[in-house]
Design a protein around this nucleic acid. Structure first.
Lengths: 352, 352
DNA sequence: TTGAAAGCGCTACCAC
DNA sequence: GTGGTAGCGCTTTCAA
């Protein structure tokens, strides 16, 4: 930090030429040391390294990429569902592909059967380190997926986990929100929005999905801690399937006539919205769902949903790309910029 | 869009050499046309332009910047207050300066007397187009400021308005949130959080600050529309001054004994927090304030504040820089990425 | 009005 | 092991 400050005063940054001059070697040798290539005597490496440190050299990535004509090829592995959030991710990848193309990076999407670890494993094992420079995976944290991710990384290909973390796999980075906190946030809103005592339902997706589990966990914690007037009943697993959810709703309301709130912590909101718009049950029921999508936005504006917990899909994609590039180039990245926020949306603060 | 899609299939992007070859001219001429420099016959321009269009050429900014050894010098004009949000902006500028330095951009801060248009005008009029490539201004929208901004732009120097918009000045961009929506958001939260009927106070900063006015406006609108149990009383102007605010509070509570909520729409929260922690009045009082800072964060965690409306200072600085660079280079930018969100923070979704 | 050539910071290939 | 040199895409003298 001190060194950096100092450097800012400098008129010019040192270049490879400066290093060569100071170390008394050729450009080629400097380059070899810089890129940790073999074929340089230890003493020479020392000399060069000394010059690098003294000068406070920082590689000009743009120039390097230009010289080597570098192109980054990144693979996005996404579940093949018509879930609106996954679609938003795909759309973002599509929309950003031109901007990224200009910045020397190509993005490819591969869709895999949802909730099917085997399919992901196959894709992952098919990754060729020669034509893929990084992989972003959105999938369940099963032992087989975990091992497949490890295998990809062993090939030297960086991997980031998207939306749902895969910590046990040693992925290079996680790009998404802290889902326990997201659940806690939903609970706080629920507790504040609902005045009368009653039961609250958590609609979840799959037991395999780490993100869903974490949300439920955070939700329960805060309701228990802060809102004694609410009681969270057993989760209902909707498998992110609108039809299934739609069909399950009547029975749920029969079982819990005193329902005062629903936390839809996964996808498949279309089923919920449809049911609510048909039956007039929703009166006085607080509903908090996840992800800003055209459907949920509409529901929020109509007052069917009361709040949305969301994560910015555009930011997620940009962040995944930046992290993959930084990892691939072994350069540092800006933590604060890569942090995905837990967005809260009310109808008042929707983006235009 | 169609063209771009097509381009993505291509193996390589066309370069200046391709244009030169296709147009049958030299590199130098291509460059002259590309950069709209004089000294090229109209017919030649046509030829080159045709080749550019045909090939779908897009300039490689990195290579261009390398060749011309471009450095961007940006000036940030900020009010000289100890207001925590302004400090956050300064801190961000400091923290990002190394990253930006690496990317060929230097940031300078100039502090001006707060709420004093004349001081800003002087700084702005002192801007020399030869050593400043862009200006980011956080200031009041007065006629003199507006005219000074116009003068800067007339010199060919891009200007972005920071946090508080200066639409009448024709600034190139506004980097900040929609403050009417921010006020609406605060009102929605207030209405949902407060159950019993009563009065709500809006603590504002200055009548000159466009952002404060807009927030108040949005707040009033939503309370009137949706929450008949609340009554917004006349604004109190705290001039972003903690001491002043602290001193005013007792009288306010005397005047409105049935206060149920406070919307602190400007700065100076320290005074409010101090008063509340000393008197035990705050019980059952909903308080919504602006900007996530160490102080407000602490107040939120302790339960003194109930929610925060915020804008990400890191994002604001990065966005200002990107917009200034894009404007300066006359290249397009990504709207979605530059949109500053209206963040809502509860104690549950605070960043680590 | 136009073009040839050098050079930005870095990499890579081919000699020695 | 090491160095010379061409070249990435673009800009910028300097001559013609």
């Amino acid at each position: 930090m001190e060194d950096q400050k100092q450097k800012l005063e400098l008129v010019k940054k040192p270049t490879v030429n400066d290093i060569a001059r100071v170390a008394g070697v050729s450009l080629a040798t400097v380059d070899r040391v810089l890129n940790r290539r073999p074929g340089v005597r230890a003493v020479t490496v020392q000399k060069v390294q000394k010059a690098i440190d003294e000068l406070g050299y920082v590689r000009d990535t743009a120039a390097a990429n230009l010289a080597r004509n570098r192109v980054y090829n990144f693979l996005f592995v996404l579940p093949d569902t018509d879930n609106e959030f996954v679609e938003a991710l795909s759309t973002q990848i599509g929309e950003q592909s031109w901007d990224q193309f200009i910045e020397r990076t190509r993005m490819t999407i591969k869709k895999v059967a949802p909730f099917d670890p085997q399919d992901i494993v196959e894709i992952l094992d098919g990754v060729d380190g020669r034509d893929v420079d990084g992989v972003a995976v959105f999938g369940p944290e099963t032992p087989s997926v975990r091992d497949a991710v490890k295998r990809v990384r062993d090939k030297g290909v960086p991997v980031v986990a998207l939306v749902s973390d895969l910590p046990s796999s040693d992925r290079d980075h996680f790009v998404g929100i802290d889902n326990v906190s997201a659940g806690r946030t939903a609970a706080q809103l629920m507790g504040r929005f609902v005045h009368r005592p009653g039961k609250v339902l958590v609609l979840t997706g799959s037991r395999l999905a780490r993100d869903h589990l974490e949300r439920r966990q955070g939700f329960d914690l805060v309701v228990a801690e802060e809102f004694p007037h609410l009681e969270v009943v057993a989760s209902v697993e909707g498998r992110d399937d609108p039809d299934l959810i739609y069909k399950m709703m009547p029975e749920i309301f029969e079982t819990y006539p005193d329902l005062v709130g629903i936390y839809s912590s996964a996808a498949g909101n279309a089923g919920l919205v449809q049911f609510l718009s048909e039956s007039k049950i929703s009166k006085g029921l607080a509903i908090i769902a996840h992800e800003l999508t055209p459907l949920s936005r509409e529901a929020l504006c109509r007052g069917t949903f009361d709040a949305l917990i969301s994560q910015d899909s555009g930011h997620i994609v940009r962040s995944a790309v930046r992290l993959l590039r930084a990892t691939s180039d072994k350069v540092p990245f800006n933590r604060a910029q890569e942090r995905i926020r837990i967005d809260i949306y009310l109808k008042e603060n929707l983006p235009p």
